[in-house]
């Protein structure tokens, strides 16, 4: 059964990584812990569901729509809330609290519009089919999830490493002021980052919604915890760390659920996190932090 568990772990882990990438990107570039990321994730899955059930859109169109819609939410949060706070030079705690407010608003709006009960994608929209390799059952859906997650992550990596845009973003991550002096449009890139990060969060929501076929207004909160766990594990603001951390969390969760009690597994994960923070605050894979005087 281990192979089956590993497959589950890979599916979950790849979505965790996708979710955490957006989270860590915002932290790396904007230096904001965006606690509305979980709610944006939830918005993504509801948008996809609404497109499929009300407009009879295909799954692919729904995914694109979900990315676009959640990206716009992220963009609006940046333009309407984070930008004025930046202009005011607010201490780092303040934008984080503002995003808590956004999260509450989005969750409450979803609850008011769609109700608190669990909603599901219609069975016929899910990719059907199942392969049997050895004694492992592979659902086509799982292949699609892993493929989409890795494809998007690959696009992001290439964009960050190879394009002018990515170079500019990395410059901002080092020092927004220096980047600005070099003539980089810092504000514009903040907007782009917010959009892209939220879009990644939104598609992660669709993928998780498909995987468990269950959507609720409150699905963002546990995911947010996992996102926090992943970026601590991988080092905050570290893109590669988010990928490794996401996969690691997926495996840790599935394995501990299979071989320990299902609940205590979470305690082990967070206990581990707590220890990692004490020993290596920059994360398992992060660079050593310089102590700022």
């Amino acid at each position: 059964m281990l192979e089956q568990q590993l497959l589950n772990a890979l599916t979950l882990g790849s979505v965790y990584a996708l979710f955490a990438l957006g989270f860590t990107l915002v932290f790396g570039v904007l230096a904001v812990i965006n606690l509305s990321h979980g709610a944006v994730f939830m918005v993504g899955s509801y948008v996809a569901l609404a497109l499929i059930t009300h407009l009879q859109a295909s799954l692919w169109v729904a995914m694109l729509g979900a990315m676009l819609a959640s990206g716009i939410v992220g963009l609006l949060v940046d333009m309407l809330i984070l930008k004025p706070l930046r202009a005011r030079n607010a201490p780092h705690l303040i934008p984080m609290i503002a995003t808590i407010g956004v999260g509450i608003m989005l969750t409450s709006a979803a609850q008011g519009l769609f109700g608190a009960e669990v909603l599901r994608f219609p069975e016929e929209t899910l990719p059907a089919g199942e392969f049997v390799i050895g004694d492992v059952h592979v659902r086509a859906l799982e292949i699609a999830i892993v493929a989409i997650a890795f494809l998007l992550m690959a696009v992001l990596f290439v964009a960050l490493k190879r394009t002018q845009l990515g170079r500019a973003l990395r410059a901002i991550a080092e020092s927004p002021k220096a980047a600005w002096l070099l003539g980089i449009n810092v504000e514009g890139l903040f907007h782009i980052t917010s959009f892209a990060a939220a879009a990644l969060g939104g598609i992660a929501g669709v993928l998780i919604g498909l995987n468990f076929n269950a959507i609720t207004p409150f699905m963002g909160q546990p995911m947010l915890h996992k996102g926090i766990a992943v970026i601590i594990l991988g080092g905050m603001g570290d893109i590669r760390g988010a990928l490794i951390g996401g996969l690691f969390l997926g495996f840790a969760e599935v394995i501990s659920k299979a071989y320990l009690s299902s609940q205590m597994g979470d305690a082990v994960a967070f206990g581990l996190l707590f220890l990692i923070l004490l020993v290596r605050p920059s994360g398992l894979f992060g660079r050593k932090l310089e102590r700022k005087a």
């Binding site: 503002a98 808590i100 989005l106």
Partner: peptide
């Protein structure tokens, strides 16, 4: 406001952070 009532909670939070630093 039933299900929408926390919406106001969240909005108050955002507005205070924005306008009453």
């Amino acid at each position: 406001l039933h299900d929408f009532r926390s919406l106001v909670n969240g909005a108050v939070l955002v507005l205070v952070v924005l306008f009453l630093p």
